[in-house]
Simulated assay, not measured.
Amino acid sequence: MFRSLLDIIFPPLCHLCRVYIPNAGDVHLCTSCLEQLHPVASPLCPICGVPFATEDGIDHRCGACSVRRPAYVAARAAFVFDGPIQELIHRFKYAHKTHLSRPLALMTARHLADFAGQTAADIVIPVPLHKKRLRWRSYNQAILLAAVLSKEWRIPLSRNALQRTRWTEPQINLAADERQQNVKGAFAVAEPERVADRRIILIDDVFTTGSTVEECAKTLKKAGAAEIFIITVARALSN
């Protein structure tokens, strides 16, 4: 009865199109918006997780991972960065809609539950923000996502194990090669004993070129981490 009363006072609406949703559940997206999501699926690169254009075939290494293996073991994203997912992430990240961290993380947790389990991870670590950007935004979107994922997967969360030690320009404004230079040497592990010999899931919102998570993985490896796995809500695809 209390739930029914709440629905009358605060009717459950779709986070995107604002249509009323009976039995909204914990994600609060209507059927129409859910049907527009594009989950990342095989065939894909088993290392960086990029999906291939064809719908047929088996997983195999992409050209980039065949030439140079990244510092992390494997990366996976739940959805392609387009349509409703892109809109939700933009609202979450740039419009201070922090409540969207929960539906984004819950959908990610469900889509990537098998992968997360296979990592046998010891801790979850979010990609950190520089203090200057944190003051401007007032929250780190990766921490909000990681908090939900940590709880869903029952893997301990280490919020401050990885730190961003210098200011970097927003990656969105840079080309791929500029992104690598932009984040080079930008991270540090304050207490290496917190990551030494640990299997780590590194969390971020979007995997674009992979420059940021690659630099984070290198830093964690230098500090003694055993293996690093990357999980993001979305994967941006090049045209």
Rank of each mutant, 00 (worst) to 15 (best):
H130F: 01
A105Q: 06
N160V: 09
T165N: 14
R159I: 14
I203Y: 06
T108A: 10
H96D: 11
A190P: 01
R199F: 10
Y139C: 06
M107A: 08
G117A: 03
P156K: 03
R110T: 13
K184P: 05
K151N: 14
L162E: 03
R166G: 06
I123S: 05
E178T: 02
V206S: 09
L112D: 03
V127I: 12
R133E: 13
V124N: 03
A121I: 00
L129W: 07
V127F: 08
A105R: 04
A196L: 14
I172D: 11
L100V: 08
A161Y: 07
R194W: 05
T165V: 15
L134K: 08
P103Y: 01
T165E: 10
A95R: 15
A176G: 01
W167K: 09
K131S: 15
A120L: 13
K93Y: 09
V195R: 02
Y139L: 03
R133W: 12
N173V: 11
I203C: 08
Y139P: 09
W167G: 02
P156V: 08
A113Q: 13
L112V: 01
I143W: 10
Q171F: 08
N173G: 06
R166H: 11
V124Q: 07
L144G: 02
A188K: 04
L112W: 02
A113C: 12
R166D: 03
V183L: 10
K151L: 12
H96L: 02
A109E: 01
S101H: 12
L157R: 03
N160T: 15
L157Y: 00
S138C: 07
I143Q: 13
A105L: 10
L134G: 05
W153H: 09
